[in-house]
Simulated assay, not measured.
Amino acid sequence: MNRAKAPQPLILIGIPTCMRPRMLAICLQSIGESALPENVEVRMVVADNDFNESAREVVEEFACNAPFPVDYTVCAERGLSNIRNHLFDYAIKIGADYIASTDDDEGPVSATWLSDLYTVIRETGGDAVGPVHGEYKAVKNPPLPSRNIIISARIYRNLKIRYDPLFNLTGGEDTDFGKRAIAAGAQFIADPRCQANAWIANPDTAPAEARGHHQGGWFTLRRHYNRVRVLTYANRTKKQKPATHILVEAVFYFIKGVVLLPFAIFSIEQRLRCGKSFLKSVAYPMSLFGPGRYEPYRDMDGY
């Protein structure tokens, strides 16, 4: 008796974009040229967060010769959380077992981008896997950045975890999402095989127009302050962190900044670490007065 073959796992490549058609084209081309995992079905959707559909022409041109089916959809309501939740809804609609994602401004993906992500999530049994990331290097079950990640359906279909609209224009939505998913029982795994995208791994390879998007100490520190403040505000309003705990942490990071201060003269990395500690010592108590008004994603940069 011939037994019916089990259906192949379906991976949805979900790309959020907003008014960056040239950067998107570079990203899509690299994905189209990268190796695909074996014995899986692959589909792609590009979700445009611009109601003027500035990405449509780029996507339709790419779709003509893409090695997998490509769809285009519009999420007119602006926001980082809105567009990522839109991709989750699309993944559920088509019955995707995994959604692999990278952002339009991260530059070309590696030649084995999707294969590496899928290999790691299959081998480890994690619910989400991505690259080893900065301050979470030593964390066993770390929240992962939203770029360059693969997420299993257990998170978005079974646990029904979604990105919080509070972070639509501030950033920090990926950290908040990861922490809530982990609290619900999901396993997040950072693995060095999940390579960072080219412009993140080496900003010098990015075109001059894109470099300011990934570099700059002041921008990095300001964004860090904002994310700490809004994340701490969210934790407090969700009763995950009392005010007394927040104030104690502020004192801790101030002392840490003082300890790191003598080492700040040796390298940019040490200066950033020191600066981030002092910023946390300010952002934590300021979160008691609200999430702040710094909204770097209200006006899009890139090209």
Score class of each variant (00 low, 15 high):
residue 2 N to Q: 08
residue 2 N to K: 12
residue 3 R to W: 10
residue 5 K to W: 03
residue 5 K to V: 09
residue 8 Q to Y: 09
residue 10 L to V: 06
residue 12 L to R: 09
residue 14 G to D: 03
residue 15 I to H: 03
residue 15 I to T: 07
residue 17 T to H: 01
residue 18 C to S: 08
residue 22 R to D: 14
residue 27 C to Q: 07
residue 31 I to L: 14
residue 35 A to G: 13
residue 40 V to S: 13
residue 41 E to M: 08
residue 43 R to Y: 00
residue 44 M to K: 00
residue 45 V to K: 02
residue 45 V to I: 14
residue 48 D to C: 01
residue 50 D to E: 05
residue 54 S to A: 12
residue 64 C to P: 00
residue 65 N to G: 10
residue 65 N to D: 13
residue 66 A to R: 04
residue 69 P to N: 01
residue 71 D to G: 06
residue 72 Y to F: 14
residue 74 V to C: 13
residue 75 C to F: 05
residue 75 C to V: 00
residue 76 A to V: 02
residue 87 L to T: 10
residue 90 Y to Q: 11
residue 91 A to C: 03
residue 101 S to F: 01
residue 111 A to W: 07
residue 113 W to F: 09
residue 113 W to M: 05
residue 117 L to M: 15
residue 119 T to G: 05
residue 125 G to S: 11
residue 127 D to K: 15
residue 128 A to T: 14
residue 133 H to K: 07
residue 136 Y to D: 08
residue 137 K to N: 11
residue 138 A to T: 15
residue 140 K to S: 09
residue 142 P to G: 06
residue 142 P to H: 00
residue 146 S to T: 14
residue 147 R to I: 15
residue 150 I to M: 12
residue 151 I to G: 04
residue 151 I to R: 01
residue 152 S to D: 15
residue 156 Y to D: 00
residue 157 R to G: 06
residue 158 N to L: 01
residue 163 Y to D: 05
residue 163 Y to W: 09
residue 164 D to F: 08
residue 165 P to N: 09
residue 166 L to Q: 05
residue 168 N to R: 00
residue 169 L to P: 03
residue 169 L to D: 01
residue 172 G to F: 01
residue 173 E to R: 00
residue 173 E to K: 00
residue 176 D to V: 03
residue 183 A to I: 09
residue 183 A to R: 14
residue 185 G to C: 09
residue 186 A to L: 04
residue 188 F to I: 06
residue 195 Q to H: 07
residue 197 N to C: 13
residue 202 N to K: 10
residue 205 T to M: 10
residue 211 R to K: 15
residue 213 H to Q: 14
residue 214 H to I: 08
residue 221 L to V: 08
residue 223 R to H: 11
residue 225 Y to W: 09
residue 226 N to M: 05
residue 227 R to F: 13
residue 228 V to F: 11
residue 229 R to L: 14
residue 232 T to C: 14
residue 238 K to R: 13
residue 242 P to Q: 05
residue 246 I to R: 08
residue 248 V to R: 01
residue 254 F to A: 14
residue 255 I to H: 00
residue 256 K to N: 01
residue 257 G to K: 05
residue 262 P to Y: 02
residue 262 P to S: 07
residue 263 F to K: 04
residue 266 F to P: 04
residue 266 F to H: 12
residue 266 F to R: 04
residue 268 I to V: 01
residue 273 R to Y: 13
residue 276 K to Y: 04
residue 277 S to A: 15
residue 279 L to S: 03
residue 280 K to H: 11
residue 283 A to L: 06
residue 285 P to L: 08
residue 285 P to N: 02
residue 287 S to P: 14
residue 288 L to M: 04
residue 289 F to T: 12
residue 293 R to I: 13
residue 293 R to P: 04
residue 294 Y to H: 14
residue 295 E to D: 11
residue 298 R to Q: 13
residue 300 M to V: 12
